[in-house]
Amino acid sequence: MNGPEHDILVAFAKSWGLFYLIGLSIGVLVYTFWPGNRKNFDRAKKSIMDDESGPWA
């Protein structure tokens, strides 16, 4: 019941998915721990603590 077309799709799904997972994880980790982003993140997490004063002009 498994024709060649199906097998190729399955093999592609199985192997390529793994590379994709690894690539994506590395990308996310690099973005998260990029030293230059640290300042932005700190600012962002503190900035919500005082945001009721209305829109900035």
Partner: peptide, 23 residues
């Protein structure tokens, strides 16, 4: 991109229906 890959990988092969489903 992050959210669609999983669905495509799992669902697309099922559409080679004649090979997924018994005779």
């Amino acid at each position: 991109i992050a959210a669609s890959i999983g669905g495509i990988v799992e669902i697309a092969p099922l559409f080679t229906i004649d090979q997924t489903v018994e005779e």
